[in-house]
Amino acid sequence: MQGLARNDFFTRSSRWARDWRLRPNSGHLWKDIIFLLCIAFIQMTVLPSLFGSYGYLDLITPWLVVTFICQRPLKALCLASIAAIVLETRLAVPAGLYLCIYWILCSLLIQIRPALSWRYRTPWFVCYVGATLWVLLFESFVINFLQADLLAEPHYFVHALLRLIVATGYGMYLSSEWMNIDAEEPVPQ
C-alpha cells in the first residue's frame, strides 16, 4: 500500500508545507521553539516595518494561550520562559516583566483548563481577551511607575485597543481547529 501512495514533487511539497505550517502545537518541542521564534520575528521586526507605529501588535500572547491550553505543563512553562526572554532581550522593558506576566498566565490557565469545554467559542474568546488585558494592564502598571504621562495620552489607549482586537482575532483564528463539536480535545489528558 505504501508503494501506491503518490510521491511526486507537488505531493511532497504539500506534505512539507503541512508539516511546517506555523502553528502553536506542532507536537515537537524543538519545532514549537522555532515557530515561537518566527512569531517573535514577525511581531518585532516585520509588523513594525510594514505598518509603522500601528504595527506594534501582540501575536505572542494568543500564541502562548494556545500553548498553555494544549501543551503539557513543563513544555508550556519552557515555551513561556523562552517567549519572555526573547521579548525582554529585544525591548527596553524592565527585566522580568514578561517572565512574570507569562508565568502567572501559564499557571492560571493550566489550573483552569480541565474545567472548561474548548469546543465552544466562549472559553477561547474569554481567555484571549483576559490574557491580552492582563498583559496590557501589567505593562500599564509598570509604565505608571516609570512614566505616568504616557497613560494619559489618547494614542496609548487607541494602541492598546488595537492590540486587544488584533490579539483576540488572531487567537480565535489559531484555535479555530478545536472549535468544532467533533474536534479533538486540546487539553492533554
Binding site: P94, A95, G96, C100, W103, I104, Q111, V142, F145
Partner: peptide, 19 residues
C-alpha cells in the same frame, strides 16, 4: 503556583531596569 503568585512582589522589589 505559590512561586508564581509571589513573583510580582519579587519583580516590583527590583530596580525595574532592562536587561
Amino acid at each position: 503556583l505559590v512561586a508564581t503568585l509571589l513573583s510580582p512582589f519579587v519583580f516590583f522589589s527590583s530596580a525595574l531596569r532592562p536587561w
